[in-house]
Simulated assay, not measured.
Amino acid sequence: MASSLWYFRENQEDKSMVLKHHPDKRKAAGEQIGEGDNDYFTCITKAYEILCDPVKRRAFNSIDPTFDNSVPSKSEAKENFFEVFSPVFERNARWSNKKNVPKLGDMNSSFEEVDAFYSFWYNFDSWREFSYLDEEEKEKAECRDERRWIEKQNRAARALRKKEEMNRIRTLVDNAYSCDPRIKKFKEEEKAKKEAEKKAKVEAKRKEQEAKEKQRQAELEAARLAKEKEEEEVRQQALVAKKEKEIQKKAIKKERQKLRTTCKNWNYFSDNEADCVKMMEEVEKLCDRLELASLQCLNEALTSTTREGGKAAVVKQIEEINEQIRREKEEAEARMRQATKSSEKSTTGGGGGSKNWPEDDLQLLIKAVNLFPAGTNSRYFSGLVLKALLTIFN
């Protein structure tokens, strides 16, 4: 209720003031009236209309004769950047549509603060407009077409002035950004950070390569040691086998010599020279054919028996060896006959190639085998002869 009374009272006062200072009232009172806009009442009325209309008021406020539109150059701020640019940004902040315009700050400002400052000004939203400077007033036009033409000319002029204003703001921000010592510091820090990261990556890669190489060398060393160990084991086994073989060879030689000596001491179990020679050949055959265990058993038997018992043991062993030799000969002859039959079949079926063995050649081959029977010292040579004959006749 009180506010309503105040509004009514204010309006009443305004109305009384208008009635008092109206040109008609003053003219009737004999006061001199100015012509056109020279009269103060006309000026007050026009100012009131502008201030009460938000659009006209913004257009009026955009034109400030006292406002400094100058932009500092890059050379002006080399030594005192903040003292030069800070007041310029502060006075231009009045044109911002957005509130809470960020400050330029100082050398202690963080990267986020500096980045927010330049992001704001590079995207500056200005409410400043230049319709108040229109050269033509469309209300003075005589027709609609003329009003449209005047409005078109005014819009073009406003757009040009707005573009010049935004270029001025952009030049201000560009000059500040290029001269800002914090930007240089941040770039150096970023460069140093990237170089450090690059060095860290190179160092990490180098360490990784070194670790791989070290692991590879360790694997190679382990493989070498394993190989050397294996070779050493094989060498030791070979030495043991050789030693055992030498021991066995010496033992066999010893047992053979013992058998020969025993048989010689007993005159080969006969008083007839021819029988002694024959027995001597049979004893040598035993020495060639018998293994170490058999020789040891035979020598033990000869040691613990009489001459007749020893002769019986030797004769029994000779008979076993001769039987073994006979079986080997029969098997060899059977293989030869089988090979001959196969050769004849291949010759007959193939119509050429290998020739049939004549009877004389077969007898010659049998004689060669009988001359160097299996189980004798010359059995290796007999094998060579057999191979040579087979090669010749095939």
Score class of each variant (00 low, 15 high):
A301S: 13
V71K: 00
D174P: 03
W357N: 01
S354N: 11
P102W: 03
E232Q: 01
S109A: 14
K258N: 08
K316P: 03
Q217D: 15
E136H: 08
D14F: 07
Q153F: 09
K163N: 07
R256L: 09
R216P: 04
C297A: 15
T376N: 03
T171Y: 02
E49F: 13
Q12N: 12
G30Q: 12
G351L: 08
D180T: 04
E188N: 09
R148D: 15
N123R: 09
F372M: 10
S109I: 02
R379C: 13
C143V: 09
F393L: 08
K254Q: 03
V101M: 11
K264P: 02
R337F: 13
K152Q: 06
K345Y: 11
F269Q: 09
A93C: 10
G309V: 05
Q296P: 06
D53L: 10
R326G: 11
G105H: 00
Y122N: 14
Q248P: 03
Q363W: 07
L172V: 03
G353D: 03
V283H: 00
C263S: 06
A218N: 14
K278Q: 15
K27P: 01
W127I: 13
D115M: 12
A159Y: 06
E129V: 02
D174W: 04
K99A: 15
E344P: 01
K227M: 09
M166K: 10
K245P: 00
L220R: 13
E208W: 15
A274T: 14
S342R: 11
C276T: 03
T66V: 12
D275M: 15
E255P: 01
Q217Y: 07
E146C: 02
A93H: 05
N38A: 10
F8Q: 06
E79I: 00
K207M: 04
A47K: 05
R147Q: 04
Q153S: 07
A374W: 06
M17T: 08
L292D: 02
Y40D: 05
L239A: 10
G350A: 13
V84S: 00
E136S: 05
C143D: 12
Q32V: 11
N267H: 13
A2C: 05
I252E: 03
L390N: 15
G349V: 07
G353K: 14
A211T: 05
E203Y: 14
D125R: 09
V277F: 08
N97I: 07
K98V: 13
W357M: 07
S109M: 05
I63D: 07
A339L: 08
P373F: 02
E219P: 01
K214I: 12
E330R: 10
R161S: 02
K46D: 04
K278M: 12
A274L: 14
K98H: 14
D53Q: 12
G352D: 08
Q236W: 00
A226P: 01
K163L: 09
E319T: 15
K387T: 14
K387S: 12
D53S: 12
E188D: 11
A77L: 02
S4L: 11
C263F: 06
A312V: 09
N377F: 15
K250C: 01
A156K: 14
